[in-house]
């Protein structure tokens, strides 16, 4: 049923600027939470804290399984993932980009081969598996990022503007994939978008981020 995520009074300051200001919220397990809000209000910062790749200055980010808090160790980190707004494509082939998360978990090459192949079909990049990933277009890179995230079968998937600055066609493909993840009802999704119609289509919970805090929209 996925993990729930509870934010307790989290604050984060960069260079004297308090981006998150005692933000509290609970993201329920298995639902899709879509966050909207103006630029610079701390949405990306929030997702990085949720992904446990940065720590808040104050407050706590707590993951819960059946109401029980989990220790923020590598084992927990490997149950989550974040699609960064810039993706962060590795300078390797498309295949190796997607295989990365499986290989570092020690999966055997045969199973890696199968799983990566299947995901590449899903995101429509199967024909490009041997290509240099840096040569992909922006939209294809986002699809690659999504494939890289999905292949590790995360229980929490954090998406930072997955359809920003890409064309309509790629945008629709990506939205379709998110709908698919959602339909499986296994993962908890927290997503940031600037597209109100898209938010409407995808969200179980619509949220607004403003002045470093989250509120229902």
């Amino acid at each position: 049923m996925g993990l729930a995520l509870e934010l307790v009074e989290i604050s984060k300051t960069y260079n004297g600027l308090e981006v998150l200001q005692g933000c509290s919220w609970t993201f329920e397990a298995g639902l899709t939470h879509v966050i909207m809000g103006p630029n610079g209000t701390g949405k990306s910062t929030l997702l990085r804290l949720c992904a446990l790749i940065e720590v808040p200055d104050r407050g706590r980010v707590i993951y819960l399984a059946d109401g029980q808090p989990l220790a923020p160790d590598l084992a927990l980190k490997r149950r989550l993932t974040l699609l960064l707004p810039g993706v962060g494509v590795f300078n390797t082939s498309v295949f190796h980009n997607v295989a990365y998360g499986l290989k570092i978990r020690g999966m055997g090459s045969k199973e890696v081969e199968e799983r990566v192949g299947a995901i590449l079909e899903t995101v429509g990049l199967a024909a490009k598996r041997r290509q240099r990933a840096l040569d992909l277009s922006t939209g294809q890179s986002k699809r690659l990022g999504l494939a890289r995230a999905m292949v590790i079968e995360p229980e929490v998937i954090l998406l930072d503007e997955p359809t920003a600055s890409i064309d309509q066609e790629n945008s629709e493909i990506i939205e379709g994939i998110i709908k698919k993840i959602k339909a499986e009802r296994k993962a908890t999704i927290v997503m940031v978008t600037h597209d109100p119609a898209q938010a409407e289509r995808l969200a179980d919970r619509l949220l607004l981020m403003r002045d470093g805090k989250i509120a229902p929209l």
């Binding site: 790749i53 980190k77 989550l80 993932t81 960064l84 590795f90 570092i104």
Partner: peptide, 9 residues
């Protein structure tokens, strides 16, 4: 960051 969010130690 990408390495970390994908579960790298």
């Amino acid at each position: 960051q990408a390495a970390r969010v994908l579960g790298a130690n």
